[in-house]
Design a protein around this nucleic acid. Structure first.
Lengths: 180, 180
DNA sequence: ATCGAAACTAAGCAAGCGCTTAGCACCGGA
DNA sequence: TCCGGTGCTAAGCGCTTGCTTAGTTTCGAT
């Protein structure tokens, strides 16, 4: 699974051959099929696991704080940090997701909606309490996720900025977006 | 070229076969090779053209306004609008870019840096004039681009929100990010 | 009417693809 | 000591891939 994560994140699902994956895992091509039914099955399992992890990160971050303001900072900085630290997994979650078969995609979509709901809920709470000034919660939810998701696209472990610094900076950007 | 744009944006570079492209253009597979040396050459030409267009959009938007504040709104809303309206081209620019060969990538990278510089320049001007409150121009440049780039990932022409509405909303979000 | 270039197709080649089959090595439990 | 299940490999099957070749059609210029 680690070999497949690296390969898919590096080259993309369709550009990765089953022989690539097997070679990275020091196996023969046939050895992979002892553990996974197909290349698509492998993507599905990785994608599902990745989404579960992402949901955990977001949910745990919200529970770590009380006020909408603190919750927003916790969620955005933790999610941005995760997209940097685990950028290979995150790339599969965000960009290889579209190569799942329709049935698999529907299944994983339920997890995506849960992640979305966590962010959206905190925004609504902040607007209700008067802490946030947000004209359109849906747009701002999308914008906050765009910020963090895009980290997986540009992050590269060789850059000087650490995942922690990215998380901190993005927490501040989130507060600006809601004028808190 | 239109057939290839649609195919690449829809399924991704590696998942698209030359037969797919030919079929969309109502041609035989061999007919494509009268106009393009290879599938990679086709991607390169599309990617290059797309980047030139993107740079034009950003540069024209800046020239349409005088103050850093107005320039920032013009740039971000025009760029977001473009990523929605031309989402097929934008997907190639942002997501299929990585499948260029190293030499082609280096060439297109120069255009990307120019786009980056336009945004960065406006931020610096705004900070210097006191209109913007931005602790880290590099991070904010990245964040502004993440916002607009990600539009190409989630935009779908069947949704109710129009490219114009998205542009307007994102112009406002940009002002929030710089506390203007 | 004739020519040459440009645009196209039918057919197919070599290589790589996802995946299967047949068989071997290993190992904990009876 | 033997067994059955598990994890693996070597070999290869059928198919698709990017691209080429040889030949045909189209058409503006002369």
């Amino acid at each position: 699974m680690e070999a497949a994560v690296d390969a898919f994140a590096d080259k993309g699902y369709h550009a990765t051959s089953t022989r690539d994956i097997a070679a990275r895992a020091n196996m023969s091509p046939a050895g992979v099929y002892v553990h996974f039914a197909s290349k698509q099955d492998l993507l599905f399992q990785l994608c599902q696991r990745g989404h579960v992890l992402a949901l955990e990160v977001v949910a745990t971050a919200r529970e770590s704080a009380d006020t909408p303001r603190a919750q927003l900072v916790a969620i955005v900085s933790a999610f941005a940090r995760w997209h940097a630290r685990q950028f290979s997994t995150a790339r599969i979650v965000q960009y290889e997701f579209s190569h799942l078969t329709p049935e698999h995609r529907t299944e994983v979509l339920a997890l995506r909606k849960q992640i979305d709901a966590v962010v959206s809920d905190v925004l609504h709470a902040g607007v209700a309490s008067g802490d946030f000034d947000v004209p359109d919660v849906a747009v701002t939810t999308l914008a906050l996720q765009s910020l963090t998701i895009d980290v997986a696209r540009w992050y590269d472990p060789t850059i000087r900025r650490t995942p922690e610094a990215i998380g901190a900076a993005y927490g501040d950007l989130a507060l600006r977006l809601v004028r808190a």
